[in-house]
Amino acid sequence: MLLGQFHQNLPLAIVRPTMVTSTYKEPFSGWIEGARTIDGVITAFGKGRLKSFLGHPNSILDVIPADMVVNSIIMAMVTHANKSSQIIFHVGSSLRNPMKLPSLSDLISLYFTQNPWIDRNGKSIKVSKLIVFGNIATFQAYMAIRYKLPLKVLWLANLMLCQYYREIRINLNRKVRVVMRMVDLYKPYAFFTGSFDDSNTENLRVAIRESDVDVNLFYFDPRCIDWEDYIMNTHIPGLTKYSMKP
């Protein structure tokens, strides 16, 4: 690593966050810019474009709110300002307070059932429970029966009926592309069941608690997060307000 080789006597602290989500508290709860990491799945599902997904039932979604990342960076700078050694801080939740994929799928299904997305035409998008397949073979079989076979039937029907079902086929094909793009993008995460060692970050939290720093101001302990409350009342509401567009 170039930084490790050339930092010489300068203090070097590398903060490595996992998937960053909307703010937990500051500057206000739920603030987010753009749709990243898990937000792509949430957005596609809420808009009715994603009905099924792929993932191991024991997959851990290692996410951390943005303000906790910022606070950890500030504290890492303060505590290592006069040290010449280098250190890496993993900032995440998988070890201290893991959230599994089935929990997220249940929560986003519940949220958009209770709070349907309104599209640009003022239409309420009705969703059903997100189907999560635990292996690729089952997922591929579902896609073949649910989407690819009807697409072939529509293709033949369009040939015979002068493209009468053209728009239906275009819309169905678009849904298939969305699902497959999401699966390709998130496959490495959807089947990852490990967790990251955040011992250095935990030691940093201990050092902060033992100092005169206000831990309530510079909080970055994921154990304080109630994932159900955060996803339902903070993250998805923030995503729909600041990021999702009709």
Rank of each mutant, 00 (worst) to 15 (best):
H235M: 06
N173C: 03
T240H: 01
F192A: 10
A35N: 04
M244I: 15
S29C: 00
R177H: 07
Y242D: 02
T234V: 13
I168L: 13
I208L: 15
F218R: 08
M77Y: 13
M180R: 05
I118W: 04
E33P: 01
L185F: 04
L204M: 14
T138Q: 02
M19S: 07
C162W: 13
R166S: 03
E228M: 05
D226Y: 01
I64T: 10
A35V: 06
G4A: 11
T43V: 12
A190K: 04
Y147V: 10
Q114Y: 01
I14M: 12
E202K: 14
S72Q: 11
Y165K: 10
L151G: 09
I118C: 03
V206R: 14
I231R: 06
R223A: 08
L151K: 12
F89E: 00
L107Y: 12
I14A: 11
Y164F: 14
Y147A: 09
P116S: 04
K152S: 13
S195E: 13
S124C: 13
L110C: 07
T193Q: 10
L204V: 09
I64M: 15
G30D: 00
N9R: 09
M75I: 15
L54H: 05
L12E: 05
I236V: 14
Q5D: 10
R96G: 05
L104Y: 01
A137D: 05
L107D: 01
M143C: 04
M68E: 08
S29V: 02
W117L: 14
N200Q: 13
G92M: 07
V183F: 01
V41A: 04
